[in-house]
Design a protein around this nucleic acid. Sequence first.
RNA 1: GGCGACAUAGCCAAGUGGCAAGGCAGAGGACUGCAAAUCCUCCAUCCCCGGUUCGAAUCCGGGUGUCGCCUCCA
Length: 469
Amino acid sequence: MIKLFNTFSGTKEPLIPVSEGKIGIYACGPTVYDYFHIGNARVFITIDVLRRYLSYRGYQVTFVQNYTDIDDKMIGRAKEMDITVQDLADRFIDHYLEDADSLGILPADYQPRATEHIPQIITLIEQLLEKGMAYEVEGDVYFDVQSFPSYGKLSGQNLSELASGSRVEVDERKKHPVDFVLWKKEKPGEPSWESPWGRGRPGWHIECSAMSTHYLGDTLDIHAGGQDLIFPHHENEIAQSEGATGKTFVKYWTHVGYLNINEEKMSKSLGNVLTVRQLRQEGDPLALRFFMLSAHYRSPINFTLEYLAQTSKALERLNSLVYNIRQRAAKAVDGTPDNEEEILLQKVQSSWDKFMQSMDDDFNTAEAIGSLFELAREANIYLNRAGGQKIKVLEEILQFYQKTDQILGYLRDTAPLALDEEIEELLQKREEARRRKDWAVADEIRDRLKESGIILEDTPQGVRWKREK
RNA sequence: GGCGACAUAGCCAAGUGGCAAGGCAGAGGACUGCAAAUCCUCCAUCCCCGGUUCGAAUCCGGGUGUCGCCUCCA
């Protein structure tokens, strides 16, 4: 049974979907005014694994992740760059998809844009107005939080606490300081749409309520996002959606912990924002992914280049192992497993069971990764054994890594490197030289190949080659 | 002020009652012509003080320390 931590209850709960066998997931996606940073990446990667795992377990998953393509930041940036808001969005959605792909993040089933759902947003605001849960003031429309008695239930606060903690000067036109805007009156030179309240644009929170229910129905199974969205964003989504439908908006709230960089919060003012685009230039994006997965998704993590290097080395061991298994498979023999091999096959099975148990337990990827390395040791011992290897055994081990990769997405493409004739000849020459104990020639060939990016490793079973990482 | 996290080896990090996973770094060893890779061995009284229990990293109370959120930042 899969257990998932629910922010709403503060405990792990058994995952029971609204309709059997189907799961709808909505995630708050990027505001597409810039490249996304590694903190955003942590959220996207976590949700990607969640989604992959549920699919793997046989659920029919529908995953929706929006693009916020209209807000103050979008408008400001478009002005700076002297392009339209829409051009800005188009550009950074493309960049998002490229960077996400490099991180092994699969595209969402639906990727709605706020500006393409204005009718749904307007309908939702109208419903709230009809029910007396919203009010219009001079072309702006606000949500009336006092009309929604359970406001604050997700973040565990009540209205008076929130009001007294308010750090921003109160807008006189609002009935309550915590009331938030659903529709903003048009400002000159900014994008706007027709509405019953005059031209304007949607507030931030309303787009998620409108789009999530549009694609997934009134009650979502899982709604995910960064921890800092709990308040006010997700609190407001609940108020809007439940206010309009009278039904539970979300069964399971999933929130991903914060990522710090060099022990500091990433922020523009500290000038320490690291985008995935930047990181891709010097580091391996899949190592970043593996780094994220090596801690529990709800814990805060601290990123440094040093840690990334540590992770990269660890990950390289797994890549090498899978590569070596594939290469060795060419020389493996048919036949039934001997005793030693039977024991190994049992270990493959128990590693798999352990892996799945870890994943079932609130997606404990850190623990699951432990199983990958435990089996790696056994597999390496097997590859080193003098008695040769059997196809069936190598296949089983390989499948273990392929299945775990399907869920976690950590392996590089590790098809064995095919050698061209020239290199094949060099290898032959080197083997001959080694037989003659002519180490000078042998080493020279090894060095020469290294310069062209091919690494040789002499093993008791013969020479092994791979491309330099 | 309110709400909520977290504290495990040199570093990263799992583990929520029964002899403390895994990775990186380090030391020693095996294998090897050398190298690389790999394997073996070594490396933690789980922030402090009380309590509950046959038994606590794990539960309870009290400290200390770090951090997040409290109107648009993932």
